[in-house]
């Protein structure tokens, strides 16, 4: 009898302890983030896996993809479609069905040139299913910061190659000229 009363009093005390703890939490500051008024620290999204995107090779909207189909073969969900272009190795089509993707990184890890990566689009919203069928080349072009004056990558590479050759020829000519005036030039240089 006496023991039972003590037991019940102890039980009553445990209830008071619980009330005290919940009251303490009630008065402590809010722990949650009220989206969209507040968003998380972007540092937490560094490794977040959003939908895939192509890695830009330059500022003109060109990628590194060489249409080797390794990502297509590696993908367990069959969510990628890559078609090779008419000229060069660049893909003509790079379609990505986000509804099938399980974000497993098989494509990213199998890419020999590092042409694809996960974006950090954590707040992406799609109104329809079709909006999740993404065209990654169009996405890459839209992220370009400069307009390519040559029109295409191939043309620009050709010009760049010609420029490099010209610069090299010029440097060679200068070296030859230096070599001619070598002894005098080197003697005059400061030690």
């Amino acid at each position: 009898m006496f023991k039972a009363i003590i037991d019940n009093l102890k039980g009553l005390y445990s209830l008071l302890v619980g009330l005290f703890i919940t009251g303490d939490f009630f008065l402590s500051p809010q722990k949650t983030t009220h989206y969209p008024r507040k968003v998380d620290d972007p540092e937490t999204l560094k490794s977040y896996r959003g939908p895939l995107e192509l890695v830009p090779a330059d500022n003109y909207g060109n990628g590194k993809c060489i249409s080797c189909q390794m990502c297509v073969r590696a993908c367990p969900g069959h969510c990628l479609t890559v078609t090779k272009g008419d000229k060069g190795k660049e893909p003509k089509v790079y379609l990505y069905d986000f509804t099938l993707c399980c974000l497993c990184a098989a494509c990213v890890e199998s890419c020999p040139t590092g042409a694809i990566r996960f974006s950090h689009k954590v707040y992406m919203v799609a109104p329809t299913r079709e909006a999740l069928h993404l065209d990654l080349i169009a996405d890459l072009k839209s992220r370009a910061t400069k307009i390519d004056p040559m029109g295409t990558k191939a043309a620009r590479l050709k010009v760049a190659k010609a420029e490099a050759e010209a610069a090299k020829a010029k440097a060679d000519a200068e070296d030859a000229a230096k070599a001619k005036a070598g002894p005098a030039g080197s003697a005059g240089a400061p030690a």
Binding site: T44, K46, Y48, L103, C104
Partner: peptide, 24 residues
């Protein structure tokens, strides 16, 4: 979840292990 997200990239369906090691 915040800690595991750093290495796995996700918060629920974690695929962290690879044959012969881990991914990140």
């Amino acid at each position: 979840n915040d800690i595991l997200q750093i290495v796995t990239g996700s918060r629920l369906t974690l695929s962290y292990f690879r044959f012969g090691g881990v991914s990140t």
